[in-house]
Design a protein around this nucleic acid. Structure first.
Lengths: 195, 195, 195, 195
DNA sequence: ACGTAAGCGAGACGGTACGTCCCGTCTTCCA
DNA sequence: TGGAAGACGGGACGTACCGTCTCGCTTACGT
């Protein structure tokens, strides 16, 4: 029973937050992250800089949060057949990475995740690990059902599934797109994973 | 007969160039591209800013060039047996990523590669793609020899090999290390790739 | 029979006004007018900014009013002998300047007085001039009584008395204290003022 | 033999310093110290803010220094007659205080002098004390010559001369000017000081 | 041998953005 | 209605960085 703890004082004006997000997205599209100044955001949003810095501690923080703010919930209902499950998950994951928002934020955060900064840790724990756990659950279930080999290392299996997808996404600018890539990947993997 | 067109005046001091490169690499690893200022590079190298801008036209240019110089030659002599070849390459790749310099710099550059900036493009083309090509060659050769299935998609196979390794490296701070990971990976993959 | 027109609603909390005044005096002495922010006053008084601005229209107004309230009533009963009168007044004046509050605030206000800002004008009129008038009265009376020369310029005489005392106070940090200074001053002056 | 020690690097552009001073004086006259922003100074001087802050650590510092930068040298040649000497010195001192520059800076620094801050100490030592010493010399000489009483306390005598003048200057906005004030003061004082 | 063209360290310069602080007002809830 | 808390727009402050420039000095080369 969580009563929304009302903070004292005048509450944040939600329309201000929205105007800021809107302005950030607009400027990001028009002039890019380098060309976007906080003053410009404030001006475009019709808002004071103080109101921006009251909500985000830095421009970096602002951009990351605004872009990543719309990450869709993840859920899967297993079909009971591992191939279909994996294709569904990879499909969603690919869509997630291709989305403007998530697709832009993830690569920016890789460095943070790697070096284990607070920001990186937060992102890893709230975004990455849950998705990995979900996938791990699907694979473990299939192994339990006897669909996959007993000795399959789930953690490594998750790497084998997501690693290539992420890599393909990161290198997107330098590769020809292959619409069947997910299918090829899953099939090649299952070939080795089947019991 | 002047082969090298000698310019008038005092020649560039090579030790200055080296000090700059060294400073850039150090700072890149310590504070990342965004946190690295040209003044800091100059101070750390014991060099004047003018000497930097005499050699490179901008900070971007400087970083691109220095990173490019970092790339050690990659070569492999196939053993004729694909499993051994792959383990060797992955081992070297892992070592490369674990190396202080490259290992810290790579994650910082992921964002650049993804968004296709000049820097990212350069890094991709001079560092990443050659390594991929090498691996692709090994796999294609093995396929030619009949070790691997005729219908194996080489490009995807490279993703399947390198993606998990990179991912494991990036998530290092949040994962237990598994010394046998490479072997597990290669064996699981070959299970599905063998003819 | 309502003598004092009672306003509707909850009456002002007098303790709030006092807390504000107290906070202003403290901050004024510690950090000066420029270093004193309204937010700091509110925080120190444990009061909301709104409660401050409900009572005073601006920071300037607040300081003026609080300083004005600081002025204790000044009164002297002449002994009928000018030397004793002057020593008494100077003694009180010196004590006033040495008092923590007034002594620290006065030097901070000198600039305001000089440039004739609203604050300075108010301070001059409500604090300085009444004290001068008092002293002038004493001197004029003594002249009337025949103790002092007929042609003594009272205004200048007041300067001659208070100027050195103020100066001595201001330069306090750079001077050795002289406990007999008041006496020496008065005696030297009277030497020239006597009829 | 002081060789002007040439500092390394590009020397400060004197015209920049002058442009800044000029702009400050202009803006000070037009909009006052409160209405003068550092950005406005930079814009008016055609100079970057960095160039201002390279020279002065704050707006306060800038204003004080610019205004006080033109304090004329003090020197006196005794006439051998104390009354003439004192009138001359007081005349110059009054002119000094009435000057735009010094007249505005002194009252602003009184607070600093009083609380003994670095700035105050510096001002006291470089501006105030030398002038006091000069005056003290004149008085001591006259005492030596027998013009003034043996037992005259020089330090207090200096206070008696300068205190009233300073006070009169500070209260200028609230007083009628008296052109003969200096003469009246000196005569009244000498009445008591003469041997 | 000596002048000259260029390299060099130091650091000033204009410009632009950043993130902080303060003022005076406004908005919420509670007493 | 008063009061505490605190958000809001506006605007100044002082800092950091970039890429350019200007000093006085040093180092080679070519005549």
């Amino acid at each position: 029973m969580t009563v929304t703890q009302r903070r004292a004082g005048r509450p944040r004006d939600e329309s201000v937050s929205e105007a800021i997000s809107e302005a950030v997205l607009g400027l990001l599209a028009e002039v890019g992250i380098r060309g976007m100044s906080v003053d410009a955001v404030a001006a475009r949003a019709g808002v004071s800089k103080a109101s921006i810095y009251r909500r985000w501690s830095s421009k970096e923080d602002l951009v990351i949060d605004v872009i990543g703010g719309l990450v869709s919930r993840v859920e899967v209902s297993s079909t009971g057949e591992i191939r279909a499950d994996l294709l569904l998950v990879l499909g969603r994951f690919g869509a997630f990475l291709s989305e403007l928002k998530a697709g832009l934020i993830f690569p920016r955060l890789v460095g943070e995740v790697h070096c284990g900064s607070d920001l990186g840790r937060h992102y890893a724990e709230s975004v990455i690990l849950p998705r990995r756990a979900l996938l791990a659950g699907l694979i473990a279930d299939a192994r339990e059902r006897g669909e996959l080999r007993r000795d399959l290392d789930v953690e490594i299996a998750v790497d084998m599934l997501t690693g290539p997808v992420i890599l393909r996404n990161l290198m997107g600018a330098f590769r020809a797109a292959d619409p069947a890539a997910d299918e090829k990947l899953v099939d090649a993997l299952l070939e080795g994973w089947r019991a």
